[in-house]
């Protein structure tokens, strides 16, 4: 071993190594422990040593680069420093802190910064809805083109008014348990759709827009069907109770996607990749917001829609919830500095 040899006999780079090898080895054992069982297992002095040994190793690497031609040593030091860097610079935020910051300032600020994408998102839905209504009024057979049979479930042009009315007020004989299943299914399904719409935005925003637009057309055709049967207010209330939140969530997800798409289409002075990264900060928060809204919407749709049967209560709950969202997004986190 290196220690047995008179250090005077060694060439400079070998001497450099033999003097520092012990501290590298000590860092290595500390790293192995942290990687296996976390930083929490270190005592105070060990944690302090880890930091200073890391800096020493970094220093060694930089010196070795200038004096040593020993390839094996360089490789080792490089790997040691890389490993230590990943341990020392591990994520340190507490989960509670992250979530709190996200809710108080992160999401509302991102929402307020994204006016254009939000216009695109809600625009897609609204225009789609209008198109759906107009096409249906022109020719009800369009309905079959838009609405897949499994979604329609018998609610198609030509169905009797009483059948349609029942479909809005029928509890379907669901008890508490099945409502829970239904709610979790809705949440799982809708959130995936929302993430999907969001992520598709990266392809120049068009697929997100198209999907949201299609959702709007569906909605429009559906509403027109009920309006024809004279049930406009009923269907409006039925949709409002969860739809205000759920459809807004889809629009928000689309807005997140649009934000990414706009960055790709119009990166300004940045490279496309840098622009995408920049836009990602707010876009991801919009996606989280959409997910959050969908959780709430699924609960409302799964439980409340079946339990609340009067028009006015449905309207109040639905739009009241909408107001709560809007108040949070517009008012929260106004005082703080915009985060970096």
């Amino acid at each position: 071993m290196a220690q047995d040899i008179q250090s005077a006999d060694l060439i400079r780079s070998a001497r450099f190594r033999s003097e520092r090898e012990d501290s590298w080895k000590r860092l290595e054992t500390l790293l192995a422990r942290v990687e296996k069982s976390g930083t929490k297992t270190l005592s105070y002095s060990e944690a302090r040593d880890l930091a200073s040994l890391y800096r020493q190793a970094m220093n060694s690497l930089s010196v070795a680069r200038s004096i040593s031609m020993d390839k094996a040593l360089m490789k080792y030091l490089e790997a040691l420093c890389a490993r230590a860097y990943l341990v020392v610079y591990a994520p340190q935020e507490s989960a509670v802190g992250v979530v709190q910051k996200l809710f108080v300032s992160g999401i509302p600020q991102a929402f307020r910064r994204s006016l254009l994408p939000l216009l695109i998102g809600f625009g897609a839905m609204i225009i789609g809805c209008l198109v759906g209504v107009l096409l249906y009024q022109q020719d009800p057979s369009w309905y079959f083109t838009f609405v897949p049979p499994e979604l329609a479930a018998g609610r198609s042009p030509g169905a009797s008014v009483s059948y349609l009315r029942d479909s809005l007020y029928d509890t379907g004989g669901r008890d508490g348990d099945t409502m829970g299943t239904f709610a979790s299914f809705l949440f799982s399904h809708n959130t995936r759709i929302a993430i999907f719409i969001f992520a598709l935005g990266v392809f120049a925003a068009l697929p997100s827009f198209a999907l949201t637009f299609y959702n709007g057309v569906l909605l429009g055709a559906f509403v027109a069907l009920y309006a024809e049967a004279g049930l406009l207010l009923d269907v409006f209330a039925w949709l409002s109770i969860h739809g205000v939140t759920e459809l807004s969530a889809i629009c928000v997800a689309c807005a997140g996607g649009a934000k990414l798409g706009l960055a790709v289409l119009n990166p300004g002075n940045l490279t496309r990749r840098a622009a995408l990264k920049e836009a990602g900060r707010d876009a991801v928060k919009l996606a989280i917001l959409a997910g959050l809204m969908l959780i709430v919407a699924a609960f409302v749709e799964g439980f409340l829609r079946q339990m609340v049967q009067t028009i006015w209560l449905r309207l109040t709950i639905g739009w009241g919830l909408g107001l709560v969202w809007l108040a949070w997004l517009l008012l929260s986190g106004r005082k703080e500095e915009p985060e970096t």
């Binding site: 040899i5 080895k25 790997a79 890389a82």
Partner: peptide, 16 residues
């Protein structure tokens, strides 16, 4: 994941 292998120093090993 970087692998840590420290080979002996050839310049030190063979000095004797």
């Amino acid at each position: 994941q970087p692998k840590l292998v420290l080979m002996p120093d050839l310049a030190a090993q063979n000095v004797d």
